[in-house]
Design a binder for these strands. Sequence first.
DNA 1: GTTGAAATGCTGTGTAC
DNA 2: GTACACAGCATTTCAAC
Lengths: 156, 156
Amino acid sequence: MEENISHVQIDDIDRSIIQLLNKNARISYTDLAKEVGLSRVAVQARINALMEHGVIERFAAVINPEKIGIHVSAFFNVEVSPAHLHEAAALLAEEQVVTSLYHMTGPSKLHMHALFINHQEMEQFMKEKLYKMPGITSVECQVLINRYKSRMGMRL
Amino acid sequence: MEENISHVQIDDIDRSIIQLLNKNARISYTDLAKEVGLSRVAVQARINALMEHGVIERFAAVINPEKIGIHVSAFFNVEVSPAHLHEAAALLAEEQVVTSLYHMTGPSKLHMHALFINHQEMEQFMKEKLYKMPGITSVECQVLINRYKSRMGMRL
DNA sequence: GTTGAAATGCTGTGTAC
DNA sequence: GTACACAGCATTTCAAC
């Protein structure tokens, strides 16, 4: 009896379903069934299974931050002393401006993305929060100029 | 008559709607209306307006790549000679493994995220595609170890 | 912004194959 | 996996306020 399966076998129809739900997560099961050529009940069962197995984590709205006055998008490479890594990560994860935070290979490296209303807000965040965090030894910051592709963790 | 407005004024109810749709994009308008305390018709009108104005770009399924056997997630910092920047960006954007690609501040820097089945596939991509692209002067690669936070471009 | 109403479509569940 | 059926909801689009 294995509850925590980490790997799920999916077929081409599952892949089509995922792709269609990725383009439009509010499509009805009925329309989805027509597209993939399965019955509505079968499609529902597949989606439920995909969610139970954690393949589909949730359905989300994709927002354009620029349109609501959030004009600065930046990536940070933050180096932290090993002893403070988890503490710093927990503190950073709490910040509203931080949208993603990952631990990467390299010398105690955190990779962070954050959104700011303007450069002033970014500078304030860096000076008053980031630089004051425990164990931070280096901060590299890059600001976004142009989006060539953004499909957010979805590989076709 | 201004068609291309780049900035939209939204209020607290819009913000609640966006947050709720971000948690669960398949919620019904009826339930959404109950949550935000507006009529169903008003909520529908607001969502339609948010989509028309480009605030909500679309609704997407959030996938856990690990669950379908895609075990390596990596970020790349790619430096390209200015003359080849757009050409290289266009070529990289076409690659299936590349999930996001941004032009960042810095010396013709591209920031890229990609997903691979395993390290072997990553190495193959780097050797056979990335290193052969025109104008590429430097490649930095970091592999993901742990996800502390991932909210994908949504700031609360 | 609101309510109400009518037509249509969708979902959840059950049956049988 | 399919098909069918049925009840209950949801959506769309009116009109009237």
